[in-house]
């Protein structure tokens, strides 16, 4: 009798709690995953810094190889992407500090903060690259 009960329990699917695929995507959700993705991107992007420092500590020829890469189209794209990820992640982190302090969690403001992360990340990236090209 106990075995038939166990079989009956097995046949009936267990209730599941709603997960990501159930909910409509909101701006705060999108920026949450963007924070994680940019963080993971920077985890790899920081290798550029290591390469730069090791090259600068070795000799002019090794440094030249790094310089040639960073000045190439691919190098510039990687650096541009890393700049954006850095600023996006930086502003996202500040947004988390605002939330940790207990502010900005109400309906309009939390979405505005999420939008500010997205817009601010691109804006700072463009400003810094404009400065980079202007001071040459």
């Amino acid at each position: 009798m106990a075995t038939t009960d166990a079989a009956a329990v097995k046949r009936r699917p267990r209730p599941l709690s709603p997960h990501l695929s159930i909910y409509r995507l909101t701006m705060t959700m999108a920026m949450s995953i963007a924070h994680r993705i940019t963080g993971a991107g920077l985890y790899v992007g920081v290798l550029l810094l290591a390469w730069f420092l090791i090259a600068a500590s070795t000799d002019a020829t090794t440094f030249g190889v790094f310089s040639a890469f960073i000045e190439s189209i691919i190098g510039r794209l990687v650096l541009f992407g890393s700049t954006w990820a850095l600023f996006h992640h930086l502003i996202g982190g500040i947004r988390h500090f605002v939330w940790d302090a207990g502010y900005g969690m109400d309906a309009p403001l939390r979405d505005q903060l999420a939008w500010a992360t997205l817009v601010g990340g691109f804006a700072l990236t463009i400003v810094v690259w404009a400065i980079g090209y202007a001071v040459r």
Binding site: V46, L47, L49, A50, L53, I54, A56, S57
Partner: peptide, 12 residues
């Protein structure tokens, strides 16, 4: 990664 960067920065 940290050791490599610190080593290189100090070597410079």
């Amino acid at each position: 990664l940290a050791l490599a960067c610190v080593y290189a920065a100090l070597r410079i």
